[in-house]
């Protein structure tokens, strides 16, 4: 009997401390698989965010740094410019990338830094207890919008891929989800393209991933999986927003 699927070498043996049904684990595993497949584990530096995945440095079996809140792309820029042989990925949640770190993200894209940014969008602040995030959908309930997000009071959500597609510097932008095996395969493909763009010294790649947060949303894991299909992906349409490699052809 040969093992065909199992914990990849890019992950450590530590049991992840995420809630049951959380999408972070799936994305961690996809990245870990790619580190092995592309044979870049020895020269990869990961940037852990502040948020639920703040302990990502314990889970990935590669070099990791945990910078201040939202400063992932800025730290990644510094490392990439001083050590161009390294492969950088900045793993960020919606509080980290779309709230406190918006400036760093937009400017890293505008400068076309040769880094890979992985953005986990679960439409809520998970770690702090399910508060309203910049990505919370209109009408969606959270602990700080108990009657649902009111766009008059709390404004509209930020669509990061659409926002960055207005920045000429960005090289590759795609939005995926991790709620079904089909979407997970697509996500892995997108992540692979994002890493390859960096290895070929092409430019700034960002993959936005719609992920489940059953605890924050107050639903079961199976319902949360369905909710991404029924509601979330209608507001945040999946697809490629910018692929300059294709445009140049």
């Amino acid at each position: 009997m040969k093992k065909i699927f199992g914990r990849p070498a890019g992950l450590t043996e530590i049991i992840q401390r995420y809630c049951p049904g959380c999408g972070h684990g799936i994305v961690h595993r996809l990245i870990a698989e790619l580190l092995v497949e592309l044979d870049i584990r020895e020269r990869t530096v990961g940037i852990a965010p502040v948020g639920c995945s703040v302990f990502a440095d314990e889970y990935f079996n590669c070099d990791m740094i945990q910078p201040p809140h939202g400063r992932g792309p800025a730290v990644a820029t510094g490392i990439k410019r001083s050590r161009p042989d390294c492969v950088l990925f900045s793993y960020q949640g919606d509080g980290d990338l779309a709230a406190i770190g918006t400036a760093e993200t937009v400017h890293a894209a505008a400068r076309n830094e040769k880094i890979t940014v992985i953005f986990i969008n679960n439409a809520i602040y998970g770690m702090t207890g399910g508060q309203l995030a910049p990505t919370t959908l209109p009408g969606m309930r959270s602990t700080t919008s108990v009657k649902g997000r009111d766009v008059v009071k709390q404004g509209y959500p930020i669509k990061v891929c659409e926002l960055l597609s207005g920045v000429d510097g960005a090289y590759y932008l795609e939005r995926c989800a991790v709620n079904t095996p089909k979407n997970i395969i697509k996500t892995k493909k997108a992540l692979k393209t994002a890493f390859k763009n960096q290895m070929d010294d092409k430019g700034f790649s960002l993959v936005e991933i719609l992920s489940m947060c059953p605890t924050g949303w107050g639903v079961t894991p199976v319902q949360s999986k369905q909710w991404i299909d029924d509601v979330m992906s209608k507001y945040y349409p999946l697809g490629v927003y910018r692929d300059r490699a294709k445009e140049e052809k």
Partner: peptide
């Protein structure tokens, strides 16, 4: 049938598939 879909969706991953 060893498709590996369960492994793919598992966040931990707590599933191994042998063939």
């Amino acid at each position: 049938i060893g498709c590996g879909y369960c492994y793919m969706i598992c966040p931990e991953p707590a599933i191994e598939v042998y063939k």
